[in-house]
Amino acid sequence: MIHTVTITDTNEKYTCRGKQHLLAGMIQLARKGIPVGCRSGGCGVCKVKIISGDYQTKIMSREHVTEPEEEEGVVLACRVFPLSDISLQVVGHLNKAVTRNQMKNS
């Protein structure tokens, strides 16, 4: 399965194939500034908010994503596996990196 992911902050789109998590697809944008940390749900650098779409998650650190946050779709991109097309907002570290580079690019 291939799902399209839209970063609403910048209107960029990328795809996630098969068992790729949201961060793996985003890394393939190959844009400078995408903070790739532990890719295991522990370090918290790849925090995003899902606006729409269905997804499965793997366990992620409660130090970085609280239960109420997770219920509102705030998750770590490296632990989210899309089941449909996804729209997301970048938050935290990722927000600064993604939007800063977008400004440079535009």
């Binding site: 532990c38 295991s40 749900g41 522990g42 370090c43 650190s61």
Partner: peptide, 8 residues
Amino acid sequence: YFDPSGNR
């Protein structure tokens, strides 16, 4: 490298 919980 990182362990499966993100400990380096």
